[in-house]
Design a binder for these strands. Structure first.
Length: 496
RNA sequence: GGCCCAUUAGUCUAUUGGUUAGGACGUCAGAUUUUCAUUCUGGAAAGAGGGGUUCAAUUCCCCUAUGGGCUACCA
C-alpha cells in the first residue's frame, strides 16, 4: 500500500498568486520533499473567460523566487504531458462519454436564464435528484427532443447525484466529514461551450497523474463529495484529502474572494491592466528565505518554541498532523520581525550585497564609492526589518535636510541662547575647515558637555533627532557638506 | 435561508482529561543608546457562554453565540 507520494499545485491562471495560493504550493512542496515524492505543477485553465495570459508566467516567477521547485509539470517534460488543462480536453471528453454511457451523467437543457428563474422562484433551489425529474433534461425528455437539443448544442452535462445518500470522507486535517447528497446539486461537468469544469478535469487529472494526496484550501471541502462521486463512478481509488485552513485578510474575509484582484497580496510585482498593484512582498524588501519561513507558519507549527527555521528544517519538521484547523489572520508586524532576524543573522556578505545594490540604485550617483556605502550599511543595517528600509535609516548620508524637526524644548533653548549657539556652530565650522581624523572628532565631541548642543548639531545634519552615533555621522559625511548643512540650518533658525 | 467547518491573550500558536495554561509578534515599564532604532530585563494579557459525562475538563458530548467557507455553464 506504500504508494509513492505525489502531490500537485494546480492554480488557475486568473490573477496574481496571492499568499494563500503560495502557502498551498509550499505545503504541497514540503510534503513531497519530506517523503521523497513528486511535486507537480498543473495549470487549470478550463474557464477560458477568466484566464489572464500573464498570470501563468507570474505564477512561475513567484514559485521560482521562493525556490519552490516542481519536478514535473507545466513547461517540463513528464509522463503525463501536457500539464495544462486546456490542452487535455480530448481526454476529459473521453471519460465524460463513459459517465454518460453508464448513466452517471446526463444532458441538461435549461438556459442560464431559466435556471435563474427557478432560483428566484423557489428558495434553495437545487438541481438534483429531488428536482431533475420535473426539469428539461435527457432523463425526462423523449429521445427525439433530446437529440434535437444535443444537435443544437444547447446543453450542459451534469453529474447524476444519488438520492439521500451520505457521503462520508476522512480529511487528514479536519477528520470525518459527512455530507448528504440531497444537499449538493448535479454539478455541471461540461459547459455549453464544450469546455469541462474544474470538478471533472481535476478529478480525471488527479487520477491519471496518480496524485496520492490532494492538499488544497478548505474552501474545497464542500465540493469534495462531488469529486468522491466521480471517483466512485469510475471505480477509482480515492486519494487522501488534506484541506488547509484559510488565510484571512484584515477584514476577515477570504483572501482570494472571487474576482477581487486588489484583495490579493502579490508576492512578486506585476504590471498589467489586470493587476494594479504596486506593492509586493518582494518589492517591499522581504527575503525569499524569510518569506518561506513566514508562510510556512501560516496554518502549521512545529511543536517547538521557535520561530526561525531554515528551509531544510521546515522540510524535516513538516507534518500534516500539525496543521491547524483554525483560519489564519495575517500579522504583518511579525512578518517584518522574522525578516529582520534573517537580515541580521544570516550570511552578512550576502545581505550586504543586496543592500548595496538597493542603495546604489536609489542614490544613482556613480561618484559615491562602494567602500563608503559598505561602511554605511554596516552601521545601519541592524536598524531595519525590510531591505527597502535601508534608505530610511541612511538617507542623511546622501541628501541634505531641508526641513528641521525641532522639539519645543530645543526651540525655547534656541531663543534663549541664540548667541551662544552661533558661537558653538562657528567653532564646529572652524574645526571642520581642515581634514580631521576620527580620533580628533571623538575628542572634540567629548568636549561638548551640554547635551542640547549635541542634539542641535544632530538636527542640523540629519534634520531630526534620529540616526546613528554622531561620531560616525561626523566622520563619514564630507567636511564641506557638514559646513554647508550647518550654514543652511543657521539661516533657517534666523528666519524663525 | 440551507449545508459544512472552526472557536486558547489584539494576532500566530503549545499543552489533547490532573500544568503556577508555555512560547512568539504586538503592547506597557525599566536598563543600554548624548537622540532615534537595535539589544537586554521585567510586567499586563487567554481557554466564547451555558449545560452535561468524570474524583477531575481548555481537552470528551450537547445547546447557544460568534466567525468563516460553500450554496455559479468560477476555481
Amino acid at each position: 500500500m506504500n504508494k509513492k507520494i505525489r502531490v500537485r499545485f494546480a492554480p488557475s491562471p486568473t490573477g496574481a498568486l496571492h499568499i494563500g495560493g503560495l502557502r498551498t504550493a509550499l505545503y504541497n512542496y514540503l510534503f513531497a520533499k519530506k517523503y521523497n515524492g513528486d511535486f507537480i505543477l498543473r495549470i487549470e485553465d478550463t474557464d477560458i473567460k477568466r484566464n489572464i495570459k500573464k498570470s501563468i508566467n507570474y505564477i512561475l516567477k513567484t514559485l521560482k523566487w521562493c525556490k519552490i521547485k516542481y519536478n514535473e509539470g507545466f513547461h517540463k517534460k513528464g509522463k503525463y504531458c501536457p500539464y495544462i488543462q486546456s490542452k487535455r480536453i480530448f481526454i476529459y471528453k473521453k471519460y465524460l462519454k463513459k459517465l454518460i454511457n453508464n448513466n452517471f451523467a446526463y444532458y441538461s437543457f435549461e438556459t442560464k436564464q431559466e435556471l435563474n428563474i427557478y432560483k428566484t422562484k423557489y428558495k434553495n433551489f437545487i438541481y438534483n435528484s429531488l428536482t431533475r425529474n420535473k426539469l428539461k433534461n435527457s432523463l425526462t425528455l423523449n429521445s427525439t427532443l433530446t437529440k434535437k437539443y444535443i444537435k443544437n448544442k444547447n446543453y450542459v452535462i451534469r453529474l447524476k447525484t444519488p438520492t439521500n445518500y451520505n457521503i462520508i470522507f476522512y480529511d487528514k486535517v479536519y477528520g470525518q466529514i459527512k455530507i448528504n447528497t440531497n444537499e449538493i446539486d448535479d454539478k455541471i461537468l461540461f459547459r455549453s461551450d464544450s469546455t469541462p469544469t474544474y470538478h471533472l478535469a481535476s478529478v480525471i487529472d488527479d487520477h491519471i497523474m496518480k496524485i496520492s494526496h490532494i492538499i488544497r484550501g478548505k474552501e474545497w471541502i464542500s465540493s469534495t463529495p462531488i469529486h468522491i462521486l466521480i471517483y466512485n463512478y469510475f471505480n477509482w481509488n480515492l486519494p487522501n484529502f488534506v484541506h488547509l485552513p484559510l488565510i484571512l485578510n484584515d477584514i476577515g474575509g477570504k483572501i482570494s474572494k472571487r474576482l477581487n484582484y486588489n484583495d490579493s497580496v502579490p508576492i512578486y510585482p506585476i504590471n498589467s491592466k489586470h493587476f494594479n498593484i504596486k506593492n509586493s512582498y518582494k518589492k517591499k524588501g522581504f527575503l525569499p528565505k524569510a518569506f518561506i519561513n513566514i508562510i510556512s507558519l501560516l496554518g502549521w507549527s512545529p511543536n517547538a518554541n521557535k520561530e526561525i527555521y531554515t528551509f531544510n528544517n521546515i522540510i524535516k519538521l513538516f507534518d500534516l498532523n500539525n496543521i491547524s484547523k483554525k483560519d489564519v489572520h495575517l500579522n504583518y508586524k511579525k512578518f517584518c520581525w522574522i525578516n529582520k532576524q534573517y537580515i541580521n543573522n544570516s550570511n552578512s556578505h550576502f545581505i550586504d550585497n543586496i543592500l548595496l545594490k538597493f542603495l546604489k540604485k536609489k542614490i544613482n550617483n556613480k561618484k559615491i564609492k562602494t567602500i563608503y556605502l559598505k561602511k554605511i550599511i554596516k552601521l545601519t543595517k541592524n536598524r531595519i526589518s525590510l531591505i527597502n528600509d535601508i534608505w530610511n535609516v541612511s538617507y542623511y548620508f546622501f541628501i541634505n535636510p531641508i526641513q528641521f524637526n525641532i522639539p519645543n524644548y530645543i526651540s525655547l533653548f534656541i531663543k534663549k541662547k541664540y548667541t551662544e549657539i552661533l558661537f558653538f556652530f562657528n567653532q564646529i565650522i572652524l574645526f571642520f575647515k581642515k581634514k580631521k581624523k576620527k580620533k580628533e572628532i571623538e575628542i572634540f565631541l567629548n568636549k561638548i558637555s551640554n547635551i542640547i548642543y549635541l542634539k542641535l548639531l544632530r538636527i542640523s545634519l540629519v534634520g531630526k533627532l534620529i540616526g546613528i552615533n554622531m561620531l560616525y555621522i561626523l566622520s563619514l559625511i564630507n567636511n564641506k557638506i557638514i559646513i554647508n548643512r550647518i550654514n543652511y540650518f543657521l539661516k533657517q533658525i534666523i528666519i524663525k
